[in-house]
Design a protein around this nucleic acid. Structure first.
Lengths: 342, 342
DNA sequence: GGCTCACAGTAAAACGTTTTAATGACTTTA
DNA sequence: TAAAGTCATTAAAACGTTTTACTGTGAGCC
């Protein structure tokens, strides 16, 4: 069987296929896309010709005609290397990996867009049909740009008053789930170790924490730390806190890097987990899982979240119309060794 | 200043810009690309017109003309969710994140291609100018497809006899570095805990391990395990090994998931690290860093590796010619608490 | 003054596909 | 049997760029 000489000659076009199959170019196009009926006999001749010539459609040409790029983009506005480091990478990439998969199921490919110095000009060189923004801040530089350009956009994050449709993550629910779990297991003095920035997640956790404490008659102890200080910062802070006021019987520490630090502090102080102190964190990443004992955390169903976001985006792209928000699946408590005696 | 009505009217084209600036379309194109000189006065008129109309080039049309998609793709042939789980995700995504950044510096965007059931048809829907394959196996399904389609490809991995240019990772060097480190610190009985599959990395580590043992007159003890059993598998295996033959004074365990398992086993047996046993692993990911004590590992300079691969690929795309292999930067020993006292 | 040369610009072709309007051929309906 | 409707197909237009070949125009050189 003669192979088409791929490298030397130019790639076969739809016209070549048409000639070989003895039909017109339009018919080949219809056969390929299935947009119109084509006789099964001609269909067969066309597929034969395609096979014979090793025809591969030119996607740029198709894209020009249809106005579709065949890609969607996922943006990480936060510098991966800096903020959160590898934990954040984990969170983001777990989403990206799943989004890539569901995009592919919609015949789309996923573009990974890193944070860049000059978003505006860079966006001019990249074509995509829609965008997913992960936990954008209120003043996210990309959001404005995308909106101005009329690119369909879907957010993953809190249901703040942003205009774009989003897969909403319910931080309040997460906070409640974790806090109540600690309380149910008997903890009564439960400091909250949390980031001090105004990110939605931090705010929600503080809010719920205060409310629940008030309801249950517990004394709130909020230890707010710069996120950038991460592990070490949390270790020192909780250590100092214990030195001052004695040991708690539970600690709620949503950010996993801080949780690692807290665990270290407890270890060096000889406070057993979960015997003396029960610890819970939010994101069930590598950190939480490889602690000793492994940390109680939440299954956020990020794969489903990514899938939902992708589907929402596809819908929005195809319908053109606005679509409503979608709630992320309920987070699920993963009670592990850091709260349950084993 | 009147904004161009983005949403209602069609997007401005190069012709519109030309009309407003009082020049021809070709000149606008030249002004944009800089391929030919254009008078500074006209240049100014054109940029003004672009600004006024909010012109954004249609990338599909450009791509059709130039034959460039403006993207490169990075492939993970291994199912992310399965093999290696989150550690592998870390490794891969560390590379992907860096590659995305350097791609952007070359005015390219990075496509994240997940492993999929039917690579052939999926590739037909995605356009890209080149591909990066991370640690492809010998029978990688993508490699054949990409080669057949004549897509410039760059490999990240061992310098096996693959035809494509690659950024070569020197597994032998990594193995030597880690093993010798353990020996230098006085370890004499150093089992190797390793994956049993025929992946290049495993082979190289075993090879070097045997050679060095022979040279130094040490008794080799190779514990080969199914990668899929991961953490737990390694924990059980090393425990059994110790039960049978007594405690070693060093352990070389390249795969980080297995290293975590080994650490657990040592902990439950009350063997102090690094006092009684020194432990070293290869990839300096989240796992290695958040162990207690943190694990001695290698800085593989994955950011530079990704950058090299991207640059190599760009070169190959632009030159069209074959390019030679590039050696990855030398791995650097990160001696941490798991081998160093203090 | 004739010759060439560089310069800045233009008109039109070309890229490969999808879509539109038109065309027969054949079937159904009146 | 004529009119109206399907059906599969086609020729040509259209998408928005870049590139090619060509055109004046004025400068420099002998």
């Amino acid at each position: 069987m003669a192979r088409a000489p791929d490298t030397l000659n130019k790639r076969a076009t739809v016209k070549d296929v048409a000639r070989v199959a003895g039909v017109s170019a339009g018919t080949v196009s219809n056969a390929l896309s299935g947009k119109r009926r084509v006789d099964s006999q001609t269909q067969a001749r066309i597929t034969a010709a395609i096979e014979q010539l090793g025809y591969v459609p030119n996607l740029a040409a198709r894209g020009m005609r249809t106005g579709r790029a065949g890609t969607i983009a996922i943006f990480s506005s936060m510098p991966i290397a800096v903020a959160g480091g590898q934990s954040r990478l984990g969170f983001l990439m777990e989403i990206a990996a799943s989004a890539a998969e569901s995009a592919m199921q919609n015949n789309l490919a996923l573009l990974l867009i890193p944070p860049i110095a000059d978003p505006a000009t860079a966006l001019g060189t990249i074509g995509f049909d829609g965008a997913i923004l992960v936990e954008p801040s209120a003043d996210d530089p990309y959001r404005a740009l995308l909106a101005a350009r009329g690119v369909p956009t879907v957010l993953i994050g809190p249901a703040a008053g942003m205009s774009d449709p989003s897969v909403t993550l319910d931080y309040r629910q997460m906070a409640t789930l974790l806090f109540d779990h600690l309380v149910e297991l008997g903890a009564r003095r439960i400091p909250l170790v949390i980031g001090q920035s105004a990110r939605a997640s931090n705010l929600a956790f503080r809010e719920v924490y205060r409310e629940r404490c008030a309801t249950l008659g517990l004394t709130p102890e909020i230890i707010a730390l710069p996120e950038a200080d991460g592990e070490i910062g949390a270790e020192r802070a909780i250590d100092a806190h214990i030195a001052n006021g004695g040991a708690p019987d539970g600690i709620l520490v949503p950010i996993d890097a801080m949780a690692t630090g807290v665990m270290s502090a407890l270890r060096t102080r000889g406070l057993s987990v979960p015997g003396a102190v029960k610890v819970a964190t939010r994101y069930d990443g590598l950190r939480a899982r490889s602690e000793t004992p492994p940390l109680t955390a939440l299954n956020l169903h990020l794969d489903e979240v990514a899938d939902l976001a992708t589907r929402l985006l596809v819908e929005r792209i195809e319908a053109g119309s606005d679509t409503s928000d979608v709630k992320a699946p309920d987070p699920e408590l993963l009670a592990r060794g850091s709260t349950l005696a084993g």
